[in-house]
């Protein structure tokens, strides 16, 4: 068992990286690794609520974030600076995550044994 952080950096609107990072997160959690998921930069956009009626041609995988509960993944974070840059607040997000400033983010990453960045 290891402490592993997955850093989600890609926007859900123009790439499937977020979805593949989610699959990876769940696979790692399924074999009892301790997962931390961090949304940085355009990755923040993955957490905005989805308009299910809009015509959008990539798979809507964001519902899958609700699986975190089932896999006991509770360490969910967003980068404060990325949020401010994009004028997004915690209330805008579709699920609860903790906001970290740069120093706190560094401390969190320093605690991890492995980091995967997608």
């Amino acid at each position: 068992m290891q402490h592993i952080a997955i850093i989600q950096r890609q926007s859900p609107y123009n790439s499937s990286g977020g979805r593949e990072a989610l699959d990876l997160t769940l696979a790692l959690a399924a074999v009892e690794h301790q997962l931390t998921v961090i949304f940085i930069g355009d990755g923040i956009y993955q957490l905005l609520p989805l308009n299910l009626n809009s015509d959008f041609s990539l798979k809507r995988y964001q519902q899958g974030f609700k699986l975190f509960g089932l896999y006991e993944i509770e360490q969910l974070y967003v980068c404060q600076h990325s949020m401010q840059q994009r004028q997004i607040t915690l209330e805008d997000l579709s699920f609860a995550a903790k906001q970290l400033d740069t120093i706190a983010m560094q401390q969190l990453l320093a605690k991890q044994q492995q980091i995967v960045c997608i």
């Binding site: 809507r60 995988y61 964001q62 519902q63 899958g64 609700k66 699986l67």
Partner: peptide
């Protein structure tokens, strides 16, 4: 129901 809830 699982599919409905989680999309997978």
């Amino acid at each position: 129901d699982f599919y409905q809830e989680f999309g997978t």
